[in-house]
Design a protein around this nucleic acid. Sequence first.
DNA 1: AACAGTCTCAACCGCCTCGAG
DNA 2: TCTCGAGGCGGTTGAGACTGT
Length: 388
Amino acid sequence: MSRKPCCVGEGLKKGAWTTEEDKKLISYIHEHGEGGWRDIPQKAGLKRCGKSCRLRWTNYLKPDVKRGEFSSEEEQIIIMLHASRGNKYVYMLKCSLPRKAPQRNHINTVFDMISISLLVFRWSDIARHLPRRTDNEVKNYWNTHLKKRLIEQCIDPVTHKPLASNSNHTVNTPPENLHSLAAPSSDKQYSRSSSMPSLSRLTNKDGTPVQGGALSHKKRFKKSSSTSRLLNKVAAKVTSVKEILSASMEGSLSATTLPYASHSNGFSEQIGNEEDSSNAFLTNTLAEFDPFSQSPLYSEHEINATSDLGMDYDFSHFLEKLGRDDHNEENDMNVEYGHDLLMSDVSQEVSSTSVDDQDNMIENFEGWSNYLLDHADFVYDTESDSLI
DNA sequence: AACAGTCTCAACCGCCTCGAG
DNA sequence: TCTCGAGGCGGTTGAGACTGT
C-alpha cells in the first residue's frame, strides 16, 4: 500500500501567498489555535494544502518569528555550529578510514559512522540556538550567504578546512579562527550583487574565470558531491540506528577503527556489553557529536542543554571557547592518527583511483567517496536489504 | 531600453519520525 | 505489534528582483 500524497486535490493554489490568504490563516489560527493542519484550509477558506498552511505559519506568520537581517553574532553562531558539526563528521570519517587497502569491515565502519552522522546534523539544531529564527531561514541564509563567504575565504563550506591547491584565489591562507569569517559589523547584509562578489565573477590572476566559472553557483554545488551521493546511498539503506548498532556488534564495526576507541571515556568498553549497551552507546555517541550536550563548555560556562540559551544569552565567551576547543581537537587528531584527509580537493580526478593506490586514496576523500559508491553493493545485499 | 545572466528566498517536494488507535 | 497519518525535516526549485552589457 502506498501512501497518499500529502497535497492531493483539484484547485489547490501553489506559489506565493497573498496578503488576503495570510489574513485568513492568521485569523483562523488566532481563533482556533494551531494543529489539525489538514482541516485548516477548508475551515479557513483557503485553497491551499495543510502542509503549505503549516509552513507559512511556522516560518513567516507566527508572531514570534524573527525576520530580516542576521546579526554578525548570529552569523558567528551559525558558522561555529556548522563547523563544529562538520568537523565531527570529518573526524568520524577520518578515524574510520583504514590506511591500507579497504576491507569489507572497514567499509562497513565508514558506512556506520556516516549513518550516525546523518542522524546528528540538523538545521533545526542550529536554529534552536538562534532565538526566534527558523531552521528554514538559517538554512537559506547559509546557502545563499555564509557558504559563499567561506568559499571566498578559501574555506571548504562542508569541511571548514582550507580549500586545497586552489591557486586561483588571491587569498590562500585561512583566517586564524572562524570568528573572522563572519562579516564585519558594518557589513551585516550584503546588498544584492553589490558589495559581495558573486562566485561567477571569481577570476584567476590573469583575469580568466576560474574553472566552472560559467556555471551558476547552484550548478557548481550540485556538480560537486560524490559525498552527497554516498550519503544518499547510505541513507537509503540504513533505516535506523539499531541496524547500525546490530551490524556493528556482529563484528563489522572494528573497535580499533572507532574514533572513541582511543578516548578514555569508556565508550569502547560499552561496545562489547549486552543489549543495554546499545542505548548507552547511542546516547554517548550522539552526545559526543553534539557540541551543546556533553562538551566541557557546559561545565565551564554553565550552558545547560535545554534552557539557558535564551534571548539575552551572551555567546561571545562561548564562541571563543568553542573555537579554541575545535582547534585543539583538530591538533589532537592529527597527532593521533597521523594522516589528514583533504576532503575538499575536488580538483583531483579520483574516478581512476585503484585499490593499489592506497596512499593517494587516503589523501583524498573524494576518492574514497567514489570508491565506496563503486563498491557499496558489496556491503549491502540489495535483495534482502541487509548488511552482508 | 532591452535583454541575458545572476541572485535571493519563499515555497514546494519527498522522505522520515513518532504517536495514536 | 502493526498501520496510518500528522507533523517535521533537509534539499531543491523557480518567480521575481537586480545587475551588467
